[in-house]
Structures are given as structure tokens and as C-alpha cells.
């Protein structure tokens, strides 16, 4: 195309040189467009102050045996459940039952702390908050689309694809956990 331009001959320009300038200028403009597009996309990701609020500490003495407490962590509900012996036994008994997302009860709590279950309280289906004590497995039941979780928070029936998630957490003392 550039070769058909009579100006090229008149000016004595090498046509391939002009093509190169076209391609280089176009590439620079495309690169610039992408560099400016990325900040506009990335601004929608969590901001610094949102990330700074990413961990909480919780005093376990507030939770009686057989009770659970729901706290807010990263804007989501977090279940902290003080399990009874019967609940733990029921969870262990089902370790080998057929499950969609097979996990033993042992890997879902900290070693030697079977009575404490810390779970992210959002259904893994579409994020509703399950309630405790309902459902066919005496654990959690999600009212939105009918997912049943057992006393270990494992999915047993319904549309949810995975078990209730266990967040990253640690015992900072015997009675204090730090989540996140």
C-alpha cells in the first residue's frame, strides 16, 4: 500500500521504512492503551484498607459447649462452633461414607482441638448463609437451594460442590484463635 504512494518515490523514501514507522507507531499506541486499561481494571480489586482488615482474633471462652458464634470476617460470616462429643463422634463415624468432597473430620480441625470447628459460613453453592441444626445430617442447612452439611461442615446432599471452607487460622493461645 505504501509502495503505491507516489510521494514515496518523490521523497526518495524506502517504502519498507514507512511501513516500519506505521507498525511501530501502531504498536506503541496499542501498548499505551493496554497500560492505561490495566489500572482501570485493577482499581476494582480489593483496596489497601480492605486487605488490611483481613485478619481477626477471637476469644474462645465466649462459646459454651454445644453452641456456636457467628462473627464477621472479611465481610463474610465465620462460624466458630464448640462441638459436643456426640457431634464429633457422628462426624468421625461418617468419615468413610460416600461424599461429594471426601475429607475426614480430622483434617477439618486443628490437631487435638476436635471440639473447635472454624468454618467460613457461606454455602459453597451460591454464597447464602446456612443455618445450624437443620437438614438431614444434623449439621448446617442452606435455605436458598437446599444444601445439607454434616456436623463437620461437609456437603452431604444438595447442589453445593464442596465442603464449607476452613479458613487459614491458628491458635495463638489455648483460648484464642487468629483467623486470616
Amino acid at each position: 500500500m505504501a509502495g503505491a504512494n507516489p510521494e514515496n518515490g518523490a521523497g526518495g523514501d524506502d517504502p519498507s521504512r514507512r511501513d516500519f514507522i506505521h507498525i511501530a507507531a501502531g504498536a506503541a499506541a496499542a501498548g499505551a492503551a493496554v497500560t492505561i486499561a490495566w489500572p482501570l481494571v485493577d482499581q476494582m480489586n480489593p483496596a489497601g484498607d480492605t486487605l488490611a482488615l483481613a485478619s481477626v482474633e477471637f476469644d474462645l471462652t465466649k462459646v459454651e459447649l454445644g453452641q456456636s458464634v457467628t462473627i464477621k470476617w472479611r465481610g463474610k460470616p465465620l462460624f466458630i462452633r464448640h462441638r459436643t462429643g456426640a457431634e464429633i463422634a457422628a462426624a468421625i463415624k461418617d468419615d468413610n461414607a460416600p461424599m461429594r468432597d471426601p475429607q475426614t473430620d480430622e483434617v477439618r480441625h486443628k490437631p487435638g482441638k476436635a471440639e473447635w470447628l472454624v468454618l467460613i459460613g457461606t454455602c459453597t453453592h451460591l454464597g447464602c448463609v446456612p443455618t445450624f441444626g437443620g437438614g438431614d445430617y444434623q449439621g448446617w442447612f442452606c435455605p436458598c437451594h437446599g444444601s445439607h452439611y454434616d456436623t463437620s461442615g461437609r456437603i452431604r446432599k444438595g447442589p453445593a460442590p464442596t465442603n464449607l471452607a476452613v479458613p487459614e487460622y491458628a491458635f495463638v493461645s489455648d483460648t484464642m484463635v487468629k483467623v486470616g
Binding site: V41, M44, N45, P46, A47, T50, A54, R74, G75, K76
Partner: peptide, 13 residues
């Protein structure tokens, strides 16, 4: 989803 929310859950952002 994190990008859509601008956080770890549906919130002010």
C-alpha cells in the same frame, strides 16, 4: 468474584 466485589464479600465497594 473478588474483582466484582472489590473485597472478600459483597460490601460497600
Amino acid at each position: 468474584t473478588t474483582w466484582l466485589w472489590g473485597g472478600f464479600a459483597v460490601d460497600n465497594a
